[in-house]
């Protein structure tokens, strides 16, 4: 009963906040002009100009947060026509403008699906468009069927329909902690009435807390076959995937101090990709879109003021720019005193 109440409360918060959240003036417009084509494609310019379910999902979410119904419509038109073509109704994850056919990997990426579903729920509520809400519900139901793994009392979010399970890999199951878009999980539970999504949230938090207790920073890819450890064949790094984790925790209001501590400590010397085995930086991440991740944490936990240059937005590359806007909207909504 208590859980249910918490769920409903959290969901209402998400939906309500989505409607009220705003981005700094003109920020979304700058983003849109640089990364969104007129046909509604969101371009990952640092990756050969491809698009993917994640970029489309972020584009949809930001359009909804910015209240740009028109861009939302075109981005969704592209997403639906080009990516939402799988038999199971989920999005094919990779779209290459240079390839024919454009979809070069029809596997899904669960975070992309989560983001698309969350953004559709946001749009459906914000503009009273039941068609969007229905589409969000369909994706959520299908994702629950395809990507949720119940194992040992936990409910895991598998990164994709194929390739990561126990039978696919010797160290399987393998998960990606940054695919837990925590803010989306209560929304999906509310949309579908499926409490598995709250179990997914619990398992994700438990995984992060277990890693924190073991003094290990979350790697991008984690084998959960036994005690969680970096998955084989991937660099054991807190890398471009995992750096989103503190942002997602803060956006979802789950930023407990103990849970956040490892991330803040790791970046005390500056934002960087970190080797989780040594704790040493591997590659600095100097972009404003990365630095604001640390600044937001510091302000949220210790009220350290955010440098003025990070409070305004200038687009750089797709990925840090996206994280920048998500951070700014989060700060304006949850920590207005930081802005």
């Amino acid at each position: 009963m208590k859980t249910l109440l918490a769920t409903v409360t959290a969901t209402m918060m998400v939906l309500a906040s989505a409607a009220q959240a705003a981005l700094p003036d003109g920020a979304w417009e700058l983003y849109r002009q640089k990364f969104v084509t007129s046909e509604g494609r969101v371009i990952d310019d640092a990756n050969g100009g491809i698009s993917h379910s994640e970029s489309q999902g972020y584009g949809l979410l930001l359009a909804c947060l910015a209240g740009d119904r028109s861009s939302f419509a075109s981005i969704f038109a592209f997403t639906r026509t080009e990516l939402l073509i799988r038999d199971d109704g989920l999005a094919a994850w990779r779209w290459d403008p240079k390839a024919s056919p454009h979809v070069t990997d029809v596997n899904n990426a669960s975070d992309g699906d989560l983001l698309i579903a969350e953004a559709l729920a946001c749009a459906g509520a914000r503009w009273t468009m039941p068609a969007y809400t229905t589409a969000a519900r369909q994706i959520a139901r299908s994702l629950a069927k395809v990507a949720l793994l119940k194992r040992g009392g936990e409910t895991w979010l598998m990164p994709g329909a194929v390739g990561f399970s126990e039978k696919d890999r010797p160290d399987g199951p393998v998960v990606n902690p940054s695919y837990w878009v925590f803010e989306a999980l209560p929304a999906l539970a509310q949309l579908t009435g499926d409490q598995s999504w709250m179990q997914v949230q619990a398992s994700g938090l438990k995984l992060l807390d277990t890693l924190a207790k073991a003094k290990m920073l979350a790697p991008d890819w984690v084998s959960i076959k036994d005690t969680p450890r970096p998955a084989d064949g991937f660099p054991p790094q807190f890398g471009y995937n995992a750096i989103r984790i503190p942002l997602y925790l803060m956006r979802a209001g789950l930023a407990d101090k103990a849970r956040m501590e490892p991330f803040r400590k790791a970046w005390a010397g500056g934002t960087a990709v970190i080797d989780v085995k040594t704790g040493n930086p591997v590659e600095p991440l100097p972009d404003a879109g990365y630095r604001i991740l640390f600044a937001a944490m510091a302000c949220a936990l210790d009220k350290t003021p955010i440098p003025a240059e990070l409070k305004s937005f200038q687009p750089t590359a797709y990925y840090p720019s996206t994280l920048h806007l998500l951070s700014l909207s989060m700060l304006r909504e949850r920590y207005p005193q930081c802005m």
Binding site: R80, I85, R86
Partner: peptide, 18 residues
């Protein structure tokens, strides 16, 4: 028009049920 394009895309991706 969207459905037509989607159908072609799904067919190219061999997503027959779709």
């Amino acid at each position: 028009a969207e459905a037509a394009q989607r159908l072609v895309n799904a067919s190219n991706a061999r997503q027959w049920e779709q």
